[in-house]
Amino acid sequence: MTRFDIITCQPHLLTGPFDHSILKRAQDKGLVEVHLHDLRKYAINKHGQIDDYAFGGGAGMVLMVEPIAKCIRELQEQRTYDAIIYMTPDGQTLNQPMANRLSMLQNIIILCGHYKGVDQRVRDLFVTHEISIGDYVLSGGELAAAVLADSLIRLIPGVLNDESSALSDSFQDNLLAPPVYSRPADFEGHTVPDILLSGNTPKVEEWRFEQAVQRTRQLRPDLLRDEKN
């Protein structure tokens, strides 16, 4: 069982992604637990305050250290966490090797930023990993948390009906996936490559590898350079 505890001030933004498709089936199978924690339940006063102005001035509000610390410590009293991840644009960019490693952990906290982010002391005292899903800014970390969780959950053994499917995904071997085809074999004169209809499995795999290399060289040559380095 892999457990995700997601801390957010906007939990309603995360109910949809985990209630459908592969993520829901993973939970129904008892392979994954996903728990959403509303940060406002840990507010510092009766007004539900969880943010305040930044010291030194400037636009935007900052999520305060006290509510977050209270939530994390309450969770840590119940179990040991392998990772406390903060979703932030200035974190390490998520990639497949990182997803592979994190998918092997058992208990994970994901902290969603909001407004101008979280008090730096949260990052200094609690966070073990800082992860970004790209060089752009979102309104909050909820969508990024869903992306991260999805990328990990699908790698957990038993989640996918065909576990080999995850192994053939793009980026698993620093290559983009080759083109894929399904029925019909001829659509308005556009036909499936003959090799895929041949039944010759070794030749099919050779063709797929060649296509993957060609597609990667054309669309993401940086991946091939990374492999050489």
Results as ranks from 00 to 15, higher is better:
Met1Arg: 09
Phe4Thr: 09
Pro11His: 09
Leu13Asp: 14
Thr15Ile: 14
Ile22Gln: 13
Leu23Thr: 02
Ile44Gln: 13
Asn45Arg: 15
His47Ala: 11
Gly48Thr: 14
Phe55Gln: 11
Ala59Tyr: 05
Gly60Arg: 06
Gly60Lys: 03
Gly60Trp: 04
Met61Cys: 03
Leu63Tyr: 04
Glu66Tyr: 00
Pro67Trp: 11
Ala69Thr: 12
Ala83Val: 08
Ala83His: 13
Ala83Arg: 15
Ile85Met: 03
Pro89Cys: 09
Gln92Phe: 08
Pro97Trp: 12
Ala99His: 05
Met104Gly: 01
Gln106Pro: 00
Asn107Asp: 10
Ile109Glu: 13
Ile109Met: 14
Cys112Asp: 05
Gly113Ile: 09
Gly113Tyr: 05
Tyr115Ser: 01
Lys116Ala: 01
Gly117His: 08
Arg121Asp: 02
Asp135Phe: 06
Asp135Trp: 03
Val137Gln: 15
Ala145Asp: 03
Ala149Cys: 14
Leu152Val: 12
Ile156Asn: 03
Leu160Asp: 01
Asn174Arg: 05
Leu175Cys: 02
Pro178Thr: 01
Val180Met: 07
Tyr181Leu: 04
Glu188Asn: 13
Gly189His: 09
Gly189Asn: 10
Pro193Tyr: 13
Ile195His: 08
Ser198Asn: 07
Gly199Phe: 11
Pro202Gly: 06
Val204Asn: 06
Phe209Ile: 06
Ala212Arg: 13
Arg217Cys: 01
Arg220Lys: 15
Leu223Arg: 05
Leu224Pro: 04
